[in-house]
C-alpha cells in the first residue's frame, strides 16, 4: 500500500476512534459506577442504554453556548480547545500495534510527557478566563497539583526507559517480549498510575473541579459544547493514560494467540475499568494531603526507584 495513504488511514483512525470511544466511556463509566453501587445506570435508551451517549451528544450540541460577560472571551474560548489538542497530540506516539502509530518518534515518551503537561494550561487558563472565584480556585489547584505530580510522573517512567534503553515507545514494547516491565518496575507502575490519575484529574484527584467544594471548579462557567470538550478531554486523557500504562508496563500489543491490536485494546480497557473502580471506591483527599503525598512520599519513592533501577542496570551490564 502507498505509505502516504497508509499513514493517512492511521491518522484518521487515531483521531476518530479515541474520540468516539471517549464518548462511549461516558456510558461505560455510568454503567460501571452503577454496577458497583448496586444500581442499573442508563438502561432505557437503546440496547443496554447504549444510545444514551447519542442522546447526551444531541442534547449538549443544542445547549446555549454561553460566554459570561465578565469572562476574558478569547482565552475562554481557546481553553477547552487546548486540552483536546494536547491530549490528541499525545495519541500520535502511542503504538497501537506493530507499525500502527502515527509518528514513531525516538523521543516518543518525552513527547507524551510534554504534551500531557501542556494540558494543564487548558485548566489554568479556563479557571483564569472565567473570572469567577471558584473557577480561579480550581485553576490554582490544578496548577499546584500538576507541578507536584508531573515531577515524579516523569521520574517514575525513567526506570522503564533504563530497562528498555530507549525513549521510543515501540522499542519499549519490544523490550517487554520476555517479561512485562510491571514486574521489575512495580513501584514505577504504582507511581505512574497515581500520577496518571492526578494528570487526568480523575477522582480521587479531581480537586480542580471538586463538586462538593468548588461548584464545578475550573469549568463552573462553561456550558454547551465547551463544557463537553473538557469532558471529552478528560475521557481522552483516561484512555491515553490507560494506553500508556499498557505500553510502558504491560507489554503493549504483545500477547499470545490473539492479534496484537486486540491485546492492546483488552489491556487498555482493563485499566480504564480500573480508573472507574478507583472513582467508585475512593474519597477525595484534602488539598494539603495531596500536596504532601506528592512531595514527601511519591517523589522520594520515584527517586529511590530510579536509583535502584539504575544501579541494577549498571551492575548487570557486561
Amino acid at each position: 500500500m502507498n505509505p502516504i495513504v497508509k499513514s493517512l488511514i492511521i491518522l484518521f483512525l487515531v483521531i476518530f476512534i479515541p474520540l468516539n470511544v471517549a464518548a462511549g466511556l461516558i456510558w461505560l463509566e455510568r454503567r460501571l459506577l452503577a454496577l458497583w453501587q448496586d444500581r442499573y445506570g442508563p438502561n432505557r435508551v437503546g440496547p443496554f442504554g447504549l444510545l444514551q451517549v447519542l442522546a447526551d451528544m444531541i442534547k449538549i450540541f443544542f445547549k446555549e453556548d454561553w460566554i459570561p460577560p465578565f469572562a476574558d472571551k478569547p482565552v475562554f474560548v481557546i481553553a477547552p480547545a487546548v486540552i483536546m489538542v494536547t491530549v490528541l497530540m499525545s495519541y500520535t506516539v502511542v503504538p497501537w500495534a506493530p507499525g500502527a502509530t502515527v509518528a514513531d518518534m525516538n523521543i516518543g515518551l518525552l513527547f507524551f510527557l510534554a504534551m500531557s503537561s501542556l494540558g494543564v494550561y487548558s485548566i489554568v487558563l479556563a479557571g483564569w478566563a472565567s473570572a469567577s472565584k471558584y473557577s480561579l480556585l480550581g485553576g490554582l489547584r490544578a496548577s499546584a497539583q500538576m507541578l507536584s505530580y508531573e515531577v515524579f510522573m516523569g521520574l517514575s517512567l525513567m526506570g522503564t526507559v533504563l530497562l528498555a534503553g530507549s525513549f521510543r515507545l515501540s522499542d519499549i514494547v519490544a523490550a517487554q517480549r520476555h517479561m512485562w516491565f510491571v514486574i521489575p518496575q512495580f513501584l514505577g507502575f504504582i507511581l505512574f498510575l497515581i500520577a496518571g490519575l492526578a494528570e487526568t484529574r480523575r477522582l480521587p484527584f479531581d480537586l480542580p473541579e471538586a463538586e462538593s467544594e468548588l461548584v464545578a471548579g475550573f469549568h463552573s462557567e462553561y456550558s454547551g459544547m465547551k463544557f463537553g470538550m473538557f469532558f471529552v478531554g478528560e475521557y481522552l486523557g483516561v484512555i491515553l493514560i490507560s494506553a500508556m500504562i499498557t505500553v510502558l508496563f504491560f507489554g503493549g500489543w504483545q500477547g499470545p494467540w490473539l492479534p496484537p491490536i486486540v491485546w492492546f485494546v483488552v489491556k487498555t480497557l482493563f485499566f480504564i475499568c480500573l480508573f472507574i473502580l478507583l472513582r467508585a471506591a475512593l474519597p477525595r483527599p484534602r488539598f494539603d494531603q495531596l500536596m504532601s503525598w506528592g512531595w514527601k512520599i511519591m517523589l522520594p519513592l520515584a527517586l529511590l526507584n530510579l536509583l535502584v533501577t539504575g544501579a541494577v542496570v549498571l551492575a548487570a551490564r557486561p
Binding site: L35, W36, Q37, D38, R39, Y40, L277, A280, A281
Partner: peptide, 12 residues
C-alpha cells in the same frame, strides 16, 4: 469490597 458489589443484587 467495592468490586465485590458487582456481584450483588441491584436495589433499583
Amino acid at each position: 469490597n467495592i468490586f465485590l458489589h458487582a456481584f450483588q443484587r441491584r436495589e433499583t
